[in-house]
């Protein structure tokens, strides 16, 4: 049943991105930056976990989840290690995703060629 929530909230978050595109014609880089910052803010104000509890993948799969993990990692590490945690925590928490993106992009970049869409 929670798949319905995942679908509805995930779809809604993505639709917000589309609203931004229509309203201001912004590029995908700006959209991604905006949503990452939204994620950081949600986590900083402690709201992300409430949403995540029932939205699950609906909020974690959108790039908002990436921003939230960054902030969550930083906050957790600050509590455990002090100031140094602010610098190490964020990337530590998201290292898997970032490294995966680089590795796969590197491999597929070598294998495939770009094609013109018609």
């Amino acid at each position: 049943m929670y798949y319905l929530w995942v679908f509805l909230i995930g779809g809604f978050v993505c639709m917000l991105g589309q609203v931004l595109i229509i309203k201001s014609n912004i590029t995908s880089a700006r959209i991604l930056v905006t949503f990452v910052l939204v994620g950081v803010a949600l986590e900083a104000f402690g709201l992300f976990d409430y949403i995540s509890e029932f939205a699950r993948a609906g909020i974690n799969v959108p790039i908002v989840g990436f921003g939230a993990s960054l902030a969550k990692g930083a906050i957790g590490a600050v509590r455990a290690k002090g100031l140094i945690g602010a610098f190490t925590g964020g990337l530590e928490a998201t290292a898997g995703g970032i490294a995966a993106a680089f590795v796969f992009a590197f491999i597929f970049g070598l294998i495939f060629k770009s094609k013109t869409i018609n």
């Binding site: 590029t27 995908s28 770009s114 094609k115 013109t116």
Partner: peptide, 15 residues
């Protein structure tokens, strides 16, 4: 494809 790459975005970017 050369113009897209110089002036806009990579071809495979989903925009």
């Amino acid at each position: 494809s050369t113009a897209e790459r110089q002036f806009r975005f990579p071809l495979e970017l989903g925009n």
